[in-house]
């Protein structure tokens, strides 16, 4: 068996496989890319060829336009593709629709790069599957023992409870456009809320795409008002859920809503000061990333010979691995956002 660094190693453009001559989630345009999921910091436009799940390919086309890459290689979960003699396959990651772990195998050495992942049940995507491997390359967004995401349904109940407590206030729910928005909507529907949910324009195409993939989101309407309509029309948003990217709520766009209450759905909301500093009044702790317990449980489940840790709080996960007797190293890849 060869040294793992010869099969995959970090470069400024991203994790690179010299044998297969491809990158995983490169942060710059490259000739050949394997993309784990459609979030902008992992999936960029302009690569020569993109290998990803059909859903991720569709998401990239929806975000960047049909010409986002010269060559598309839609690959189903479990299907094995050979790239210059390196066997590449995708396993579900449970992060967002289409998200996958990249499994790279060559001459008996198997390495798995998780991309972003979570372990808990999500009605909008296929659940994570641990893949036994020699080297496990895990994300570490929430890799601190302080991050323990509470039960999703309890968190959604907090939002619905607030709607009844403040029936005159528009609830502006900050969510990322891909994944979080659709998951939150699905959870709200599961909790029995059937009213129309108003969405910012930035969410529309991805919500439509999820619907096309058979994920029903209920009644959605644009959170817009006709130009010049009477002030009273604003009242239709009172006591309703309005969803948009967090940035939109700091914008002029948000002025149209009556006495708004700002809600943000994110794993970061676990930390009070973080919620307070972002001006959030109702923090909903809900993440598409694994929390501390899920990260450590996943390493145990996969039980690799070596753990490599990337983007996030690498030090803490490496420290934990060391205490557990795993050989671990931080990759210090750059270019990935602290998203959630």
């Amino acid at each position: 068996m060869r040294s793992p660094d010869q099969l995959l190693h970090p470069t400024p453009a991203g994790l690179y496989c010299p044998v297969g001559d491809f990158y995983i989630d490169p942060v710059r345009a490259v000739d050949r890319a394997v993309i784990t999921h459609g979030h902008a910091d992992h999936a960029r436009a302009g690569h020569g060829a993109v290998l990803a799940t059909p859903e991720t390919i569709n998401i990239m086309a929806a975000r960047y336009g049909e010409d986002f890459t010269a060559k598309r290689q839609p690959t189903e979960l479990g299907e094995v593709v050979s790239i210059n003699g390196v066997e590449v396959s995708l396993a579900p990651a449970g992060h967002v629709l289409g998200s996958a772990q990249a499994v790279v195998e060559h001459k008996g050495l198997r390495m798995v790069c998780t991309g972003d992942y979570k372990r808990r049940q999500d009605p909008t995507c296929t659940p994570f599957e641990p893949v036994p491997c020699h080297v496990f390359i895990s994300e570490a967004t929430f890799a601190l023992p302080v991050f323990r995401h509470p039960d999703d349904r309890e968190e959604i109940r907090k939002l619905l409870h607030s709607l009844t407590t403040f029936p005159d206030r528009a609830h502006l729910v900050g969510v990322y456009a891909l994944g979080k928005a659709q998951r939150v909507i699905s959870l709200i529907r599961e909790a029995g809320y059937q009213d129309t949910i108003y969405i910012h324009g930035a969410l529309k195409s991805l919500c439509d795409l999820y619907e096309d993939h058979g994920i029903s989101l209920g009644s959605l309407e644009p959170a817009t008002l006709e130009k010049g309509v009477a002030k009273e029309e604003q009242a239709k948003f009172a006591g309703k859920i309005v969803m948009g990217p967090p940035s939109a709520f700091r914008d002029k766009w948000a002025r149209r809503f009556p006495d708004p209450i700002t809600v943000f759905c994110s794993g970061w909301m676990r930390i009070r000061q973080r919620a307070k500093q972002s001006g959030v009044e109702l923090p909903i702790i809900l993440s598409d990333h694994a929390d501390w317990d899920e990260l450590t449980q996943t390493v145990r489940d996969v039980n690799p010979q070596e753990l490599w840790v990337t983007h996030g709080r690498e030090d803490a996960l490496c420290r934990w691995a060391e205490l557990e007797g795993y050989s671990a190293r931080p990759l210090r890849l750059v270019g990935y956002d602290e998203d959630s």
Binding site: L144, P145, V146, F147, R148, R270, I271, R272, Q273, R313, D315, A316, R319, W320, L323
Partner: peptide
């Protein structure tokens, strides 16, 4: 109840002793 180093990393991140301890305390 937990490793000193993991606690230190957590406390550095959160910045408040009571909040850090409340979050890392084993359930």
């Amino acid at each position: 109840r937990m490793d000193e180093e993991l606690f230190r990393l957590s406390y550095d991140y959160v910045g408040d002793l009571a909040e850090t301890v409340s979050l890392v305390w084993p359930e």
